[in-house]
């Protein structure tokens, strides 16, 4: 309360005609900072990535090793997050499982982004027939029920990591295409594109040198949001039993196995769920902040 009235008094000391200016400059300052929420989310993701990488050289317990003395055991010094129904170390399984989630999250969106950029920028720049064809492709992708197609592909092509990555990448194409198209439309109307044409630049040169640097920034910020989408999709597929097969641990499968024990030993499903929840939340918070951040810069420029 005391603080509040002090700031109000200070506010009243600012001459009337300068208040708007002060408010605007405060807002600009806020927009130039990423904020503590972003950095908290960033720290969580980085910590999880480091943990995942450390599985390659630190002596964690084997995620597939069954310790029959610790079946459904609670939290303990030996097994930090307890043991699951088969006596496996949940902590070790969670960080190994993060590896699968991250390998999907860091590859699928970029495959989708590459294809989305190609289609979206062509549609936004050439318009007309190209635009029609691209929107038909995008609508067709959206028309596939995603889980069903993924199950079919993984069933016939085999549930390997590369197949999983490609199937999930397929579903990120529409979002990237639409954002690339919208931003290309926006910038293609600017006079610097006309100026480049007047200098004799080819279409390819305009797309790569003039438009790509402007379009890729909002797209890169958006890719963080897509990462969380891919983690959910991977988790869903694993939960349904069509993801990477055992003994490789994945979050989705851990949750699905934990569901059977939900009544008596809730933490078995709870631990991987919490990790997945925090990961998706962090990626979304970072993505949202970065998107706002790049939007402001674009409108300033």
């Amino acid at each position: 309360m005391a603080d509040n009235s002090t700031s109000l008094r200070l506010w009243r000391q600012i001459p009337f005609f300068k208040r708007e200016e002060a408010a605007v400059s405060d807002r600009i300052k806020d927009e130039r900072r990423l904020g503590w929420v972003f950095w908290a989310a960033f720290s969580y993701i980085m910590a999880l990535i480091l943990l995942t990488i450390s599985t390659n050289f630190l002596p964690y317990k084997d995620p597939a090793f069954q310790d029959y003395g610790f079946i459904n055991s609670g939290l303990s010094a030996k097994y930090w997050f307890g043991g699951d129904a088969l006596g496996r170390d949940i902590f070790s399984r969670v960080i190994h499982g993060a590896g699968i989630s991250f390998s999907v999250a860091f590859t699928s969106p970029f495959i989708g982004m590459a294809i989305g950029l190609l289609m979206g920028m062509s549609a936004g720049y050439f318009r007309g027939r190209v635009d029609t064809v691209v929107s038909i492709i995008v609508d067709s992708i959206l028309a596939f029920p995603n889980i069903v197609l993924a199950i079919a592909v993984l069933f016939f092509a085999g549930p390997t990591l590369p197949n999983l990555i490609l199937v999930i990448a397929f579903y990120t194409i529409p979002q990237f295409t639409r954002i690339a198209r919208a931003n290309t439309l926006l910038y293609a109307q600017r006079e610097f594109v006309m100026a480049a044409r007047a200098q004799g630049a080819s279409h390819l040169r305009i797309l790569i040198r003039e438009l790509l640097p402007n379009v890729i920034i909002p797209l890169a910020a958006f890719s963080l949001l897509v990462m969380s989408f891919t983690i959910i999709l991977e988790g869903t597929l694993s939960f349904l039993g069509v993801g990477i097969p055992p003994p490789t641990p994945t979050w989705g499968r851990m949750i699905s196995e934990g569901v059977e024990e939900l009544v008596e030993n809730a933490w078995i499903a709870f631990v991987p769920s919490i990790f997945m929840f925090l990961t998706i939340l962090s990626l979304n918070l970072m993505g949202d902040r970065l998107r706002q951040f790049t939007d402001v810069k674009a409108s300033n420029a």
């Binding site: 610097f192 402007n214 420029a301």
Partner: peptide, 18 residues
């Protein structure tokens, strides 16, 4: 085109911000 150039009304929009 090298011998035939154009200058536009909006100088800010005529230059690529990136």
């Amino acid at each position: 085109r090298q011998r035939l150039q154009i200058i536009f009304q909006d100088p800010v929009s005529s230059l690529n911000p990136r």
